[in-house]
Amino acid sequence: MSFDPSFMWTAFLSLFKALPTTLFITIISVVAGFVIGTVVALARLYRIPVLAQIASAYVTFVRGTPMLMHLLLIYFGLPILIDSIAGALGSSFTSASIPLLAFACIAFSITAGAYMSEVVRAGILAVDKGQIEAAHAVGMTTPQALRRIVFPQALAVSLPNLSNSVIGMLHGSTLAYTISVIEINAQAQIVAADNWKYFEAYLAAALLFWGLTVLIERASGWLEYRLNSFQRGGAA
């Protein structure tokens, strides 16, 4: 068996077919995870009764268990719940009509939410509490103070860690192949199995992931520069 560089181009063309699925999983899980993480972080920071305890338990459980476990629990557990509810309501809807991609997005959003909640919480805590007190003194409500003063500064502080979370979810999307979702990793396996050129196919997949990671890092660096320039009052 010898290395075939020319086959890597063939593998690249095939892998690009699965690129939209990988990006879709990543974007949905990151956006949904950020929303979940923000809500969880605020519930814990403001010690909202009941919600704070539920949020803490959620973060502890998700961060204490593997990402693959979350995917399998959702894949096998959610259909049981959906079918039970549908049966109780007399509905003809079944979990079999739900696309596999949806299970992957739900599971990864739950995972991202727990990790991003810690990033958001750390960013909010990094903002001086005196600024919130000053906002209250001029008549702002807490939601207004968070939206206008705290969140912009917290985002700038949290951006490097948020970009790491995005990269982590991009790489974690490869686990979707375990429930038969054809993303980049699964497509590489298909190409390799058809041609018995596993090294070339996985090397092409690795280079594609590396390129996507570099793009995320560059975009994060540009956005961080813009945010910091805006806060300093300089021209961006």
Rank of each mutant, 00 (worst) to 15 (best):
R218K: 13
G221I: 09
L215W: 00
I184T: 03
G172Y: 12
P66N: 04
T38G: 09
A18T: 08
A126G: 04
G168T: 11
F108G: 04
G139K: 06
V50P: 01
F103E: 10
Y75K: 07
T142E: 15
Q53V: 11
W196V: 05
A188R: 11
M140E: 07
P49S: 12
P143A: 10
V181R: 00
A154W: 03
D194Q: 14
V138E: 07
H171P: 00
L81K: 02
C105M: 15
F230N: 07
P79S: 10
V59Q: 01
I80H: 14
L215M: 13
I167A: 00
L203Q: 01
A43Y: 02
E133G: 15
D194P: 03
L73K: 01
M69W: 02
V62G: 03
I179T: 07
L23H: 11
L45R: 14
G37E: 07
F209L: 15
S97V: 02
L72G: 09
A176T: 12
F61L: 14
F108M: 15
T10S: 14
A193T: 08
A104I: 02
P152H: 08
M169G: 00
M67G: 02
H136T: 12
I182N: 07
A145R: 03
I27L: 15
V62N: 03
L203K: 05
A57C: 11
A102R: 05
W222F: 11
F61C: 02
S56F: 01
L89F: 09
T22H: 09
L155K: 14
A154D: 06
L15K: 10
E118Y: 09
N228M: 08
V50W: 13
F93I: 14
F7P: 00
A122C: 05
I82T: 00
I74F: 07
G221T: 10
A102F: 07
A52M: 11
R121V: 05
S56G: 15
S29T: 00
T141I: 01
S92A: 15
F7Y: 09
W9Y: 10
I25H: 06
D128C: 01
L73P: 08
E217T: 06
F76S: 12
N164R: 06
A176W: 04
Q131T: 11
P99I: 13
Q53N: 15
V31S: 01
T178W: 04
T178N: 03
Y198G: 01
I85F: 11
E217I: 13
S173Q: 04
M8Y: 05
A156V: 11
L212G: 06
Y177T: 12
M140K: 03
V35M: 12
K197R: 15
I36D: 02
A112P: 00
G64N: 09
L159S: 13
L212Y: 05
A52Q: 09
F108I: 01
L15I: 05
A154L: 12
Y198N: 04
R47F: 03
F230C: 03
V127S: 08
N164C: 10
L101A: 06
P20I: 08
P160V: 07
E118P: 05
G233N: 13
H70R: 10
Q231W: 04
Q153L: 08
V35Y: 13
W196I: 04
R218V: 11
E118H: 06
Y202C: 02
A135P: 03
F24S: 14
Y198V: 10
P20K: 04
Q53A: 15
K17W: 06
